[in-house]
Design a protein around this nucleic acid. Sequence first.
DNA 1: GTGAAAGCGCTAACAG
DNA 2: CTGTTAGCGCTTTCAC
Lengths: 326, 326
Amino acid sequence: MVTIKDIAKIAGVSHTTVSRALNDSPLIKPATKQKIGEIARSLNYTPNVNAKSLVNQKSYIIGLYFSNLSAGTSDRFLVEVIKGINTTLPSEYRLAVHDMTTLSHPAEELPRMDGIIVMSQSDQDDAFIEGLSQIDLPVVVLNRQIDKPSLLNVTSNDAQGVYQAIDYAIQLGYQKFSIIEGKPTFRSSIERKKGFLQALADHQIAFPKEYAVIGDYSIESGRTCAKQLLELADPPEVIFCSNDDMAIGATNTCLEKGLAIPADIGIIGFDNIPFSKYTNPPLTTISKPVFEMSQLGAQLLLDSLAGTVSKKQYLLDTELTIRQSL
Amino acid sequence: MVTIKDIAKIAGVSHTTVSRALNDSPLIKPATKQKIGEIARSLNYTPNVNAKSLVNQKSYIIGLYFSNLSAGTSDRFLVEVIKGINTTLPSEYRLAVHDMTTLSHPAEELPRMDGIIVMSQSDQDDAFIEGLSQIDLPVVVLNRQIDKPSLLNVTSNDAQGVYQAIDYAIQLGYQKFSIIEGKPTFRSSIERKKGFLQALADHQIAFPKEYAVIGDYSIESGRTCAKQLLELADPPEVIFCSNDDMAIGATNTCLEKGLAIPADIGIIGFDNIPFSKYTNPPLTTISKPVFEMSQLGAQLLLDSLAGTVSKKQYLLDTELTIRQSL
DNA sequence: GTGAAAGCGCTAACAG
DNA sequence: CTGTTAGCGCTTTCAC
């Protein structure tokens, strides 16, 4: 293991100078920096993070905590989140990943990190997040809107996403739009419905209240809600489903009733889950910018660590993924 | 931040004694240990991992690397793997998660960990694994069988799993069994077919070679392979699919042909992916013990670190998840 | 601009 | 059994 002392010896300077040079201190003359940099490179020097940690009182570890839904749906975005964060973090940082529920020793685990990122997918996470807001560490919450002044928060603009999808459907000539909403207590349900209604309003399209049915984000609820919609005297031409799972359920129902998609009825989902590409027909849906949210979240954490605090709340645009269900 | 010196002062001993006591050294008298332990607890003392790391030349970080299939299927097991490992690792260890492809600086990243766990899902990972086998760190590969003496390896006994499923189907009265194989170069395909054939052989059930068709683990291939099977003059009663994706494709084909599942034809999958619960009908499939594999993998790494090396290769039993497609 | 010395919190000889 | 001392690799006063 090569240390700054080894470099110092070769360069004929003190290890202090090497340390300063490698950290690009303004105290060191460019020529010296240059020389030391070259020696370090030729020796394949890597700084000892543990020693840095000890003296700097930093761990160079960022913690990532994710929801743990029993449904097994929680892992949907995890890979993208990890990639997004890892591509943003400088190389001396490590990303330590945990799930919220198997937190073995919160009190001794949390303080050991420089900052925390939470990928939240359900309001069941609120207690955990509340706990985090107490401790004295920068925390960013991804994916769900949280109104706590102490937390950084990056979410997607779901309303805008749905607006765009409905707008697109209107261009296509559809006129009668129905919605299967998500769990009423979820902010995501509210946001998505907001975008939906706004799009209709902006195009002066009427919205009969029987065209709104309330699901719970499960496949099964998509199935039953769609049934309800199709049995209406004047059934809709499009079913917007507040997530892909319900869209899958709704698709099944339509197919069972002998309806052709999209000829007889259009379906729109939300989330762009991996499976949505394989439904029959492939689902037109709205994608959250998970990768970008994660990158931004990591950057915000870094900024916060550097004291360059900025705005606390960030909203990223979604993207419409056009396939064949509309 | 309370240190061992603080404890030492209160206990009226030297900090060395505190260190030894806290590490349960046999050199320290039980009474002293007892007292020091109590003080530490009352002070809410947590050891400074960075200081330990520095002096022990250990990072207390385990790296987890996972496959990055473009298909987006790679995240299937990730959550379970992370949980399994985290529940096994002692609390001073951190699990740093990465994906293999965005490895920014392998040379300086890898040596910074005490050991490495790889969750592999494809033979595309072989180059990466080969690289790991060069460096001087304990490495355990999960999920795929790797024949390198330097690596620890935990996999599931796929052959046994398929054997059990077919055996179960035979109890149910089925007699004509077909198989949709996975990618021929994959060891998993070979293992699964082996269990399949063995079960038939042990029950003296004939296996016409046209009952074997070769897929590629994709939904689409499940669809076309099933078609091929159903168009046979004497079609099979059961289609065993070497993974769930193909089982989903096969299910679609059967349904399109107006066949009732399981009345007209039985389907068996492999993997127990989250979605398999929601297929129509819910899929009977074989589950790998991902959580247990991960726990065992983490334990082996720990043992390896402690010098308690043991057997290198481990095979864990799968489990049959009975639902309604058979 | 650069160096000498101290110290981050811990473990490990070495002494007693 | 316990204490003294040194040192892990690095950053940071304080001098020069």
